[in-house]
């Protein structure tokens, strides 16, 4: 490959391209720091005095702080629930080389969310759980559980069977083998599964839109309601968007090295 002569300009060109590509995200962050007059100014202002007024309004005059808290509760609990269910299941699937669970969880991943939404709504209403955290957390676990399972399986498949067998000879039951021998070995996979589950659960809109109640409304649903409120306050809207975008972006970049190789890996395995 004769890429040495080109590398002199390829880096700056790609860097400028990257910045242009990300300009909508930067625009969001900038707009959130503009005063209400500046944010709707036309032509748009590139130079302005930053202000935290939009954030003050967002957290002071609306329930957005509580909504953000709800988002953390739902994403955190559904991640935990998904992992607690997926880890032993992935271990059993890998150990016994089961095939059918992959098909079932693939279907769960593919089906349109709306398909489950009406039955859930009716189910949870009958059980008196509608609008509560439990219903939301269970619904989001339908996203996190198969996701964690898919992420963890390759890690488990790469764990030598002899370790598990050695554990049996050393006097362990299957549960002890999983917790004391296998989990420490697949620790990186657990970290990735946790982060990805959290991000996917955090980002998910549809279930919370239909299933959350007034007190359990997540940040994403709340910010959608801002749009609906006639005179849209762009500054506050962009502040809300920035707050919502922050956790997924921060978490993603903690595992980005893995993501680039991991996604490619999954694709090659097809």
């Amino acid at each position: 490959m004769s890429d040495t002569p080109r590398s002199r300009w390829s880096t700056p060109v790609f860097t400028i391209g990257a910045l242009l590509f990300m300009s909508p995200i930067l625009w969001m962050a900038l707009s959130s720091l503009k005063s209400p007059q500046e944010v709707t100014a036309y032509p748009p202002k590139l130079l302005f005095t930053p202000t935290a007024a939009n954030y003050a309004e967002l957290f002071g005059r609306t329930d957005f702080l509580h909504n953000t808290f709800n988002s953390f509760v739902v994403a955190g609990a559904s991640t935990l629930l998904g992992l607690v269910i997926a880890i032993p299941a992935a271990f059993a699937i890998s150990w016994h080389r089961m095939v059918w669970p992959a098909t079932v969880s693939l279907f769960a991943r593919m089906a349109p969310g709306t398909l489950f939404l009406l039955p859930w709504f009716i189910m949870f209403s009958k059980l008196g759980m509608a609008g509560g955290y439990t219903a939301l957390i269970l619904a989001h676990a339908v996203i996190t559980m198969p996701l964690a399972l898919w992420i963890l399986l390759p890690y488990l498949d790469a764990t030598p069977r002899e370790i598990v067998e050695s554990g049996q000879i050393d006097g362990c039951r299957s549960g002890t083998i999983l917790i004391r021998l296998v989990l420490p070995m697949i620790y990186p996979g657990i970290v990735v599964a946790t982060i990805m589950s959290f991000v996917f659960s955090w980002n998910y809109f549809l279930f919370a839109l239909a299933l959350s109640g007034f007190d359990t409304k997540t940040a994403i649903v709340a910010s959608f309601n801002f749009i609906g409120e006639g005179t849209t306050n762009w500054g506050a809207l962009m502040a809300a968007a920035t707050v919502i975008a922050l956790p997924p972006l921060v978490l993603t970049f903690t595992v980005q090295r893995w993501l680039v190789s991991g996604l490619s890996f999954g694709a090659v395995k097809g």
């Binding site: 391209g17 990257a18 990300m22 995200i25 980002n203 993603t252 680039v260």
Partner: peptide
């Protein structure tokens, strides 16, 4: 920065 630009969009909530 290029890696950041590649990963950021699809990690954003579609709502955002």
């Amino acid at each position: 920065l290029v890696r950041t630009a590649i990963l950021s969009p699809f990690m954003l909530p579609p709502v955002v």
